[in-house]
């Protein structure tokens, strides 16, 4: 299953490191990353592939959100399917 992770927050050292740490722990493969700074805010989108037999989506979601909360980042993960259905005719 593919999902899109969004990370938004004040730019700081080690954001990539921390996010990919969680993904590594949950066996999630990163397929694509784009990032930018919008008015001092670090904004990153990640396309990831989740092996559903090994990782429960909900647990990964909780882990990312918890890590985000600890570091002042807003981290969200959603299935790619949702963006496709909503934004493509």
């Amino acid at each position: 299953m593919k999902a899109i992770i969004t990370v938004i927050g004040k730019d700081q050292v080690g954001i990539m490191y921390k996010v990919s740490g969680v993904l590594n722990e949950y066996n999630v493969n990163i397929e694509d990353v784009t990032q930018t700074l919008m008015q001092d805010y670090f904004t990153m989108l990640m396309l990831v592939k989740i092996d559903e037999s090994k990782t429960k989506f909900r647990q990964l979601q909780d882990a990312l959100e918890d890590m985000g909360a600890e570091n002042g980042l807003s981290i969200r993960i959603q299935k790619e399917e949702i963006f496709d259905t909503m934004h493509k005719v």
Binding site: T6, L45, I82, M86
Partner: peptide, 16 residues
């Protein structure tokens, strides 16, 4: 950057 726009729009719809 449309991908940013689409993704952020969806996240905003759900969260705010």
């Amino acid at each position: 950057m449309t991908i940013y726009k689409d993704v952020l729009e969806t996240i905003n719809m759900l969260e705010r």
